[in-house]
Nucleic acid binder design. Structure first.
Length: 422
DNA sequence: TCTGGGGTCCTAGGACCC
DNA sequence: TCTGGGGTCCTAGGACCC
């Protein structure tokens, strides 16, 4: 049976999450900012209508935000992650073959539903998700993932009450693709869009018809795949089980610049702790740790950036071992006399935590360390992040990321439950 | 007068995604 | 003053081997 994909995408996801528990925001312009309250990462329709662009730094549009009383939120990933899970669980009720593609998108394989009215099924999905979670979604349906992505874009252009588009049921495919700029196609980013436009390929239809050897030469196999998918040949399968992660990163810009090794050590120690928590959450152990630091590239100040990679003798999930390695690396690359803006750590060469290759000369008491980490995670999970912390993470954390507009953890903290007023 | 060829592995950088 | 974070995949080129 030929494949059929539906792409379900939450509309303005972060902004919608903020709206769910704060109904007075209905109909108002909302923006959500990235970490450090830096850039706009989500906008409600009303904010889009005001011309607020995606990714724009907040300080550049501050007057506009004020003038139109735009509601501004710091990002609240605890809330968004939980809402995402609710949406995905709802979608599972409609279709067991589901790929969670990102925090706000999922592909569904509708192969077995061919005899249904797929448009109507899409509407049912949309209604149910809205009713159960409060999140509005759009549904795009087509025979490849790339076309389902485009169908989803078209769904977003339909009326507010519909937001479902089934490309399979649409007669004039050529006209449809002719109306799509080449840069709107999945996997065609700014660089490829420029290249294609220079060669006279400006629409999805022209890309579909493009000369394959030219595409192969300039865009490699990725380009060929896009062309095939636009032609209705499915190259990208539904991936129901996510592949194990290849790396785990924790990096963040500082709330203000850091100019002492002591503060940088605190920051790196904190980031390592967070990365180690994520490792344990995924059941993975790291055998390589990379630390990087950098100054603020947006200023004229003297610039410095460097990184160091440490191979760990044995794959580990132990926060203290990783902190030790991270700080040792940091001291190798840290240079006095700079104003640092950002640091980060990456754990790579990951292996399943229960299949760590032992080392003959390893003196660590691993069972003990494992119990310690389990206790640490359990306590922080029960009583809140940071309840138990390493001394090297520092007490004041004066360099920490800013978030001045954070909404409550409505769904994951008893103390922050929303209150319904009669 | 004249510098092999073919294979693998690794890494850095570039492209993309949300 | 203020400019995000976390990922993936592909490719070219160098190192190395026989």
């Amino acid at each position: 049976m030929p494949p059929v994909f539906a792409l379900v995408d939450c509309n303005n996801f972060y902004a919608s999450c903020e709206g769910v528990f704060n109904p007075i925001l209905e109909g108002k312009p909302i923006v959500v900012l990235s970490n450090n309250d830096g850039c706009v990462v989500a906008r409600s329709n009303e904010a889009k209508a005001l011309g607020v662009r995606m990714g724009v730094p907040e300080f550049q549009i501050r007057p506009l935000l004020r003038a139109h009383h735009v509601q501004v939120f710091s990002s609240n990933y605890t809330l968004y992650g939980d809402m995402s899970q609710r949406v995905m669980e709802t979608l599972e009720q409609f279709c067991p073959d589901l790929e969670v593609y990102s925090i706000d998108e999922a592909f569904l394989s509708l192969v077995g539903f061919a005899q249904c009215d797929l448009t109507e099924y899409g509407r049912q999905i949309r209604r149910t998700v809205k009713q159960w979670t409060g999140i509005p979604v759009s549904v795009g349906i087509a025979e490849t993932k790339t076309l389902a992505k485009l169908a989803n874009r078209m769904a977003k252009q339909t009326s507010d009450t519909d937001r479902v588009f089934d490309m399979l049921a649409y007669q004039d495919r050529e006209a449809l693709l002719n109306g799509v700029a080449v840069g709107e196609v999945w996997e065609i980013g700014p660089s490829y869009a420029r290249l294609l436009t220079q060669h006279g390929i400006t629409t999805a239809l022209q890309l579909r018809e493009a000369d394959e050897s030219w595409i192969q030469r300039h865009m490699g196999v990725v380009g060929l795949r896009v062309v095939a998918e636009l032609n209705g040949h499915s190259c990208l399968d539904l991936e129901a089980c996510p592949a194990p992660k290849q790396g785990i990163t924790c990096s963040r810009a500082f709330g203000r610049s850091v100019s002492t090794l002591a503060e940088m050590e605190e920051a790196v120690s904190c980031y390592v702790s967070r990365a180690a928590e994520k490792l344990r959450g995924e059941g993975l152990a790291a055998t390589v740790l990379t630390v990087f630091i950098m100054t603020n590239a947006f200023t004229d100040e003297p610039q410095y950036r460097n990184s160091v990679t440490c191979e760990l003798p044995v794959g580990t999930v132990s926060t203290s071992e990783l902190i030790r390695a991270g700080l040792k690396g940091l001291r190798r690359i840290y240079r006095d006399g700079y104003r640092y803006k950002k640091a980060g750590v990456m754990c790579t060469a990951l292996v399943p935590a229960d299949q760590v290759q032992p080392d003959l000369f390893d003196r660590q008491d691993h069972p003990k360390s494992k119990r310690l980490m389990a206790a640490l995670d359990a306590i922080n999970d029960r009583w809140g992040a940071g309840t138990l912390d390493y001394a090297s993470n520092g007490l004041t954390k004066a360099w920490q990321t800013q978030s001045h507009h954070r909404s409550p953890a409505y769904t994951t903290d008893w103390d922050e439950l929303p209150v319904a007023n009669a």
